[in-house]
């Protein structure tokens, strides 16, 4: 091996650890405003992901230790867990995580080779296959008379004997669900927004969760773990698309701030769309990638079959990455028109 003989101290493990750390404020707010149930989901997803990763590494003949140490499986598990409804049954969590790690990551070649974001693949598979179970969201504590304890949450998740009345008392439609259902029932946005779930910008509790993810994302940006292009373009895409629609018909389309302050958007903008493996690599490409994902999110939310579109939007943009990268190759030092090779 030849030069260079010195390296910076950074490592994949360090990058992934920072991503996990940046998720902590979001998790804390989640627990504070929605109850401790999410901790069960997170733990279950983590254990499943590590086990799946270990088995797949063994099966593919890779050494387990350096790859388990890189923490990338845990990042996938957490991102999936935070996207799932907080009271989703255990088998839903396990299935989603297994699909993410086994199919979306390892069958595509493992770390660095997957063209789709594994967490989003897991999420997409679940929402397409089990749409009903994917609505078991615990409502914000502020609106819940008798919040679930950690043990009760675990019991719900693991299919324990929980009275239906108790469950009904805590589960609630998310703001995006509420908006979608309301619009389908021919209500105007203003009418829908009078429902108790809605807060200043987004839903009660949800907007704070979004804010916590935003905070964690800004930390990652300040540390240069993620680039500024993807989150900014993603948020801009959402704001502009939603704003455009809202401007023309405020009665039928939600306000841009409302769309922006959904937790899935902040999580998507700073933690999922910024996944380097499945995202664009060139500076301009990152802008296109982020903007496209934002635009598609609003399109899917507005006209698609699902209340939220972040996952599908990102997966669709993942598909476009090779094309985007190829056509956005930056100018190199000393490049002139003559030496510029046409993209082939």
């Amino acid at each position: 091996m030849a030069s260079p003989f010195i390296i910076d101290r950074s490592s994949v493990t360090q990058v992934m650890a920072w991503v996990l750390a940046a998720l902590l404020p979001g998790i804390a707010v989640y627990v504070w405003l929605f109850g401790p149930g999410i901790l069960v989901t997170l733990s279950l997803a983590t254990v499943t992901a590590l086990a799946a990763e270990a088995v797949m590494l063994k099966a593919r003949g890779y050494p387990a230790k350096p790859f388990l140490m890189d923490l990338s499986a845990i990042v996938t598990a957490w991102l999936l867990a935070l996207s799932l409804p907080s009271l989703a049954p255990w088998w839903l969590i396990v299935t989603g995580t297994l699909f993410a790690i086994v199919v979306a990551k390892h069958l595509y070649g493992g770390l660095g080779q997957n063209i789709f974001n594994p967490a989003m693949v897991g999420y997409a598979v679940l929402i397409v296959s089990f749409p009903v179970q994917m609505t078991q969201w615990a409502g914000p504590l502020e609106l819940t008379a008798t919040p679930l304890t950690l043990a009760q949450s675990a019991s719900v998740i693991f299919g324990g004997d929980v009275p239906k009345a108790t469950l009904d008392a805590v589960t609630m439609a998310t703001p995006l669900d509420a908006l979608r259902t309301g619009l389908l029932q021919q209500h105007t946005v203003d009418e829908i927004m009078t429902q108790s779930i809605f807060g200043h910008y987004g839903g009660i509790g949800f907007e704070w969760l979004a804010g916590a993810f935003l905070l964690g994302g800004l930390v990652l940006w300040a540390l240069r773990i993620i680039s500024w292009q993807v989150p900014l373009a993603f948020l801009a895409g959402i704001w502009l698309a939603a704003g455009f629609l809202h401007f023309f018909d405020a009665g039928r389309f939600g306000a841009p701030w409302f769309h922006l302050f959904a937790p899935s958007v902040m999580l998507g903008a700073f933690f999922i769309a910024t996944d380097p493996v499945s995202g664009a690599t060139t500076p301009r490409g990152k802008l296109i990638f982020g903007f496209g994902a934002g635009l598609l999110t609003i399109i899917i939310r507005t006209w698609g079959g699902y209340p939220d579109g972040v996952a599908f939007a990102i997966l669709l943009m993942n598909l476009c990455v090779p094309l985007i990268d190829q056509y956005t190759q930056p100018r190199v030092y000393g490049e002139t028109k003559k030496t510029r090779a046409p993209p082939a």
């Binding site: 091996m1 593919r60 003949g61 890779y62 050494p63 350096p66």
Partner: peptide
């Protein structure tokens, strides 16, 4: 061609 990749660490050739 630089020999770097992972597989040798596992000692298992595919």
């Amino acid at each position: 061609h630089p020999v770097v990749m992972l597989k040798q660490v596992s000692g298992e050739a595919r």
